[in-house]
Nucleic acid binder design. Sequence first.
DNA 1: CTGAAAGCGCTTACAG
DNA 2: CTGAAAGCGCTTACAG
Lengths: 343, 343
Amino acid sequence: MTRRPTILDVAARAGVSKSTVSLVLQGSEQVRPETRTAVRAAMAEIGYVYNRAAAHLRSASAGLVGLVINDLRNPFFTQFATTLQMTLAAEGYATVIANSDEDPALQARLVGSMIEHGVAGLVISPAYGGTQAPFDQLARTGLPVLQVLRRTDPRTDLFPFSSFDYAAGSRAAALHLLDAGARRIAFVGGLPGRAITQERQSGWRAVMAEHGSEAFAIEGKPTRAFGMEVTQTLLARHPEIDAAICFNDLVALGLMAGFARAGRSVGTDFRVVGFDDIEEAAQSWPQLSSVACDIDHFARDTAARLLAWMVSARHPPAESRMPVQLITRASSGAGRSRAPGRP
Amino acid sequence: MTRRPTILDVAARAGVSKSTVSLVLQGSEQVRPETRTAVRAAMAEIGYVYNRAAAHLRSASAGLVGLVINDLRNPFFTQFATTLQMTLAAEGYATVIANSDEDPALQARLVGSMIEHGVAGLVISPAYGGTQAPFDQLARTGLPVLQVLRRTDPRTDLFPFSSFDYAAGSRAAALHLLDAGARRIAFVGGLPGRAITQERQSGWRAVMAEHGSEAFAIEGKPTRAFGMEVTQTLLARHPEIDAAICFNDLVALGLMAGFARAGRSVGTDFRVVGFDDIEEAAQSWPQLSSVACDIDHFARDTAARLLAWMVSARHPPAESRMPVQLITRASSGAGRSRAPGRP
DNA sequence: CTGAAAGCGCTTACAG
DNA sequence: CTGAAAGCGCTTACAG
């Protein structure tokens, strides 16, 4: 295995100086087209590979962006990660995706590793718990850092936060269920004490208060298994509940599987609305109504925000909320109509 | 924003030479413990951050591993990617995960980008189609490269291939269904002409041949939607079919949703076995029998293979197959027993 | 155990 | 438009 060719080898082959090769590499306009072509040909002939480490050492950026996700196995985050990566790739940035797996210690190491690798910016959906250390470290670097979907560091001036307008979504879901004939609407799932649980409950709570109904919530893990579990509780101990807004679609699908097992029909006896509108929502039976969060749009928006900050030093607003949309399907006893997310 | 501190700053602060700092950075034994402690303290005080680009430029490796996945949105691959990343992280390697999204052109760019970033090794589950160009480029670098789950380049001496023993899995599934009382077993899903479709069919084909039954396959996309679609075809035009082995669990779940919609019961009238044993298989209703592919084990195994190759120059075998296991549940009319994957 | 020197492969002003 | 020179922040022998 021979030594990897460098710009010196390319320069020798093409009969120019290495500065010229460097300029061609950067797509400079000040090199004659013929020269450029000759240099490109020389590169191809000797199998030249650009060495980013060297470029990075001398200049500012390696064109790397870091993405730290609390749970990459969750399809919602996977979708966000892949779309963000592809959007940034179109702008010439490579994205390093890492999964902190809800582990603050691992997250701290990942953030450290990304800084060492010289990322030009970072997007983080943080794990809960742990210390401020990684954010302090990030603050010291002065790097553009975006908190998305979860806010664990309150310094949104340093780490701007963006998420969806979940409150509007749960309000729309509650109004829709009442409209469809539901009388007692529970909120199912979501870990207690978490900001996102509170946000996804808030619109529903407001509607319940407006209607003088009790806001009955059963909190728990955002999983299918928890949804199935809740079915038992509901059937055995809360027969008066005739509808549920679920923390996410997984809980809703679990709840529906539980009703199926009990031989109870969803969409008439009991109405369900989920959150996220994952692909499966439209493919379950009955089809699941859900508050759609356009994660692709959100990912592209996040990329644009980060690029503006990295490239043009345009600092994003401290907090922003993307609108959501209620998609009504059979599980809430509705047809195919669509109601806007902001009533 | 001030200049990032370098080892020179650390050296000045600690009152040693920069070589000593470098040795401490590498955890060398030849530095006195007191000196080491002093250097570490100096680093913390001035907020020193290791510059990997510089280290990489001078020495061999940046401790980076590349992972290119054809469809990172597929939970099976997501699980593989996250487990591989975490296993390699435990050995001090950072993994750059990228999604080629089944696009050969994008894949070529991603491979090029990873080489430029100086990865020490690469794991690829390749997209189908496109040219050999990226593999030729990889061959020129002499880098350790592992093909996993899909083999698109036949040079397994250069790019060792590993996957699951799907043939044994579909054989076990077919025998189990016959044993449970099924008479006519179809194979549903899997894109025509793909090696993996052929592999997942092969054991079933062999069993059908041994029993003198016709091997009836309906090929198609590996999606829930396709599974639902097939239900119509089956009910309307092939009432004699009383069981199906599905290309993957998504197809199987779609098929089951289709039967549910038609008011037909799965597990008695019709038996279903899926492939992959994704989390949802145990949470659907009825629970789905499936050929389990231990993707976590496979990911750890892949990491070990790659590390052995990168670190100790131990070349893996050209091809290897990991055993699978048939998990029988209600969808095939079985109890909770487990039958081994290799009958 | 520690220090002085060279060099990894680029980019960046600066001359020409 | 092109060339010669310096330097990015490390690691690596090599002396001491």
